[in-house]
């Protein structure tokens, strides 16, 4: 097997450990402390924000306006699809206009 395949399989093993590890470690505790619970509830918004913020920071006007439109549409329409499609449409339009 090639070195590349070994790198891939080692990366796969580490990834699987991250996906099962949190559960294996946390399920040892019988009762979850309110602070741990509050922290866990904040996890999705906190993590996903870190995938958006630097992308916005590195983006130009088209990217920033597209994201801002997405925020507004999410507040007005609520669902994922209206927000996603409007934001993507704004991005494509502005990139064509702004070159």
């Amino acid at each position: 097997m090639s070195m590349t395949a070994w790198i891939i399989l080692a990366g796969a093993l580490m990834t699987f450990l991250t996906r099962i590890g949190g559960h294996l470690v946390l399920s040892r505790f019988e009762r979850i402390h309110p602070r741990v619970e509050a922290g866990l509830n904040a996890v999705p918004a906190a993590v996903l924000t870190t995938l958006v913020a630097p992308a916005a920071m590195n983006g130009g006007p088209a990217e920033i306006v597209a994201l801002a439109t997405g925020v507004v549409v999410a507040f007005l329409a609520g669902g994922m699809m209206p927000m996603f499609l409007t934001s993507a449409a704004v991005l494509i339009l502005l990139r064509h206009l702004l070159g």
Partner: peptide
């Protein structure tokens, strides 16, 4: 780039953030 494909994932992640 012209079709915005490189930026669809940040938009999608933003949608998820808004959902919470």
């Amino acid at each position: 780039h012209a079709w915005g494909i490189d930026f669809l994932l940040p938009i999608y992640f933003l949608g998820l953030v808004m959902g919470f």
